[in-house]
Nucleic acid binder design. Sequence first.
DNA 1: GCCAACGTTGGC
DNA 2: GCCAACGTTGGC
Length: 159
Amino acid sequence: MAKRQYWLMKSEPDVFSFDDLWKAKKRTTLWDGVRNYQVRNFMRDVMQVGDGVLYYHSNAKPAGIAGVAEIASASYPDPTQFDPADAHYDPRSEPDEPRWLAVDVRAVEKLARFVTLDELKEHGGPLADMGVIRRGNRLSVQPVTAAEWRAVRRLGGLK
DNA sequence: GCCAACGTTGGC
DNA sequence: GCCAACGTTGGC
């Protein structure tokens, strides 16, 4: 088993908040609907069960880190790509050669306090190069360094 | 293979 | 609701 890795995953709280995940059965949800090849490749080639997840609320007031989760499954074909009734349906994806992947994500810890995007930007130091604070960064799943992981946890009131 | 048009993301 | 950023599409 390779070393544990860390990720930031964006969700719009109006659609599915960290609290929704906390209340979900087994605190777990299927992270589906990814339609970006870079993110797909992360899921396929890099992510591993047990990796840490910073659960980020985008399109929110305020935006920021709402909780800590983990990757709870290996990647597998995203079922929504084959469902014509689903908003994420992709008619070009063939069942024997799925184009899009999903993973299971499980809530692990609530933060003692929400960490806003402004705080992440102002913190500097280990967070100075964090992807999510860069303007125009639209990746819905992005890698986080161990130093960033620790700093965000501390800001959120966790050890 | 270039690149303009278009659609989406997401902070503000 | 505006618009910058940027990925994707499609004409050529």
